[in-house]
Design a protein around this nucleic acid. Sequence first.
DNA 1: TCAAGCCGAATTGTATACAATCACGCGAAT
DNA 2: ATTCGCGTGATTGTATACAATTCGGCTTGA
Lengths: 206, 206
Amino acid sequence: MIAGLLDGTWKGGDRLTEAEAVERFGVSRTPVREALLELQGLGLVELRRNCGAVFAPFGPDELRDLYAVRSLLEVEATRLAATRLEKDWIEAMIAAFEKIRDQGGVDPDWESDRELHTAIAEASGNRRLAAEIARYGELVQLMREIVGEQALGGIHNTTVNEHLDILHAIERRDEASAAEAMRRHLAQAADSAAGATLRRREEIRE
Amino acid sequence: MIAGLLDGTWKGGDRLTEAEAVERFGVSRTPVREALLELQGLGLVELRRNCGAVFAPFGPDELRDLYAVRSLLEVEATRLAATRLEKDWIEAMIAAFEKIRDQGGVDPDWESDRELHTAIAEASGNRRLAAEIARYGELVQLMREIVGEQALGGIHNTTVNEHLDILHAIERRDEASAAEAMRRHLAQAADSAAGATLRRREEIRE
DNA sequence: TCAAGCCGAATTGTATACAATCACGCGAAT
DNA sequence: ATTCGCGTGATTGTATACAATTCGGCTTGA
């Protein structure tokens, strides 16, 4: 529903009134309003009184900014996880990692990917940090749904190795390496996402 | 309204149904729901189906986590602001700073304080980072309203000097010093907030 | 011609009624 | 005694009607 409002065809500055959204989804204004409020919380629309919701621009610049913040959060969480290294969380991380590895399909298993990132985030010991990371996970997931999941495929083996680097560094309690490995991993993800959105833009132009 | 729901007397795990909130405020469920959703977005309550909203615990640990994340965001923004150093933003920062300094009253002018932090955040050039920082500004403001503003008074001169350190470092394009100055500033703020919440808890116990 | 003021349509904000869902307690069967 | 199942009441989710606000255009006057 929330993703439905963002069908990928909007341009920054486009406006959508609640009435239009109601017409498009066949539900009443109440859930539409809540969805719009949630999108505002994620920073994807700006709600203005009696003017409709205006979509925030979402091009390469915004994607770069988004991944910069995500990286800031997750790198710090990784560093903290390496310093604390609690056994329960290590097991959770490894379980999530093996789930991704054994999946082995061509298309990446984003759910397991999120589980791993969540495990690392919670291993940081900072619940609010973990919550913010989860929020960015939602945002990225939403982006995937808009852009089309298949557009992000074909990076599976690479990500497995990147995850492995991160986990090994955490197990060694090597916080600097762990942070750097996570930084590299997210830089890769950012590049991949940028490519996918560009391809998506071209699809729309056709 | 949002702050009203959190009157400072709740304990973590307490539940509040929409009906109770309606009764307490004399407004209908619609705005109550929106307020609760916003509180959920800020991570202060957890909304569970047919169970009412359960308040998140908010003690010293949570406060520490909160300021850790806030510091992570604002320190990075300060660093970026120092590397970019665009003239317009410098002027905005100085204007906000002088407003705080010339205020000179005993009670800190939190509105101007937020303006300065906002100016620094936007000078980072990362709009999403600035948006997250603004979100944490709201959260801290909310906390002040709950805890009682007066409880945080008496730190005015200290914060002026801290702000000055940050601005001077940014003007020198000394990103390391600027980041460190912001880190110290927020560590002070965290201590101050911790003290205020503790005092508040004692007030309630009486 | 331009500006000021006002009116109406459009849009959001709020209240309330109704539907769906779930928790909790009771009772019966094993 | 414990557990399973069910029914009822409570609570949230949704729809819709109404109030408040605001934007745009039109008129009117200088």
